[in-house]
């Protein structure tokens, strides 16, 4: 029982619900650059950008490369009275490997290094086949959903601010120099911001579905008349 606009109120086909306020919208394909907002709460429902997949893939690779440097290069160098200590994040992790604060260090490392890398990997896993026009991988939906769920727990940018605070605190105690790893983290903030600008979950979900990965034959094929989405 489809209406002329291509949606079905019995099965939900061709409809989209705002994740923030549950308002129903008729789904339609946007062209790149258009933006669909929820009619009630104004949440951005879709914001496709042209070439977004390729950009996101490139940025995911960038994150991985920067993170490699961030982990193994010296992070901060400290010296006082001729006794110096240059430390990389990797070194920090090893130094704490047997302390009672191991859980705290592990949690911190996971939040600032593990999750950004994992998210980049999941994004690559999801997007590379899609960008090449091949069918999505079998677990693409799970991977992308996990990546979105982990977004708030990936805290590289907060870590950079934390470092600045730590620098001020330690300034009276010793001389501190910023190492290359700090600047890698700093660059990650901007990579992250750009990546967010290109990210449009709705487009990616549609692409996963359209590519035949986990389809149920309900994807929109033709554009219904514009009704709810404003560009």
């Amino acid at each position: 029982m489809k209406s002329k606009d291509g949606y079905d109120l019995q099965t939900g086909e061709g409809l989209m619900a705002c994740p923030r306020c549950d308002a129903l919208h008729v789904e339609e394909e946007l062209t790149a650059g258009e933006r669909a907002r929820c009619i009630r709460c104004g949440t951005v429902l879709a914001n496709p950008r042209s070439g977004a997949f390729v950009q996101l893939i490139a940025l995911a690779f960038t994150t991985m490369v920067l993170m490699m440097g961030a982990v193994f290069f010296p992070f901060l160098e400290i010296s006082r009275m001729g006794i110096g200590n240059a430390t990389s994040l990797f070194g920090v992790a090893l130094a704490f490997a047997d302390g009672f604060l191991l859980p705290l260090v592990l949690a911190v490392l996971i939040m600032i290094v593990g999750l950004p890398v994992l998210r980049s990997f999941l994004l690559l896993y999801t997007l590379v086949p899609l960008a090449q026009g091949r069918p999505a991988r079998r677990h693409a939906a799970t991977a992308f959903r996990l990546s979105e769920h982990l977004r708030p727990w990936s805290m590289a940018e907060i870590f950079v601010i934390g470092t600045s605070v730590a620098l001020v605190k330690v300034a009276g105690l010793a001389n501190v120099h910023l190492g290359p790893a700090f600047w890698a983290f700093f660059a990650l903030i901007f990579v992250n911001l750009v990546s967010r600008g290109f990210m449009c979950q709705t487009t990616i979900w549609d692409a996963i579905e359209d590519s035949g990965g986990r389809t149920d034959g309900r994807e929109m094929v033709e554009t219904p008349k514009p009704e709810t989405a404003q560009s």
């Binding site: 006082r80 006794i83 200590n85 920090v92 605070v165 730590a166 105690l173």
Partner: peptide, 24 residues
Amino acid sequence: GRWSMIDVFVVAILSALVQLGFVA
């Protein structure tokens, strides 16, 4: 919410960094 983690990171960085043995 996430930004409250700053203080935890500060402590983690400081304790990792300032291990000058005898000095501090």
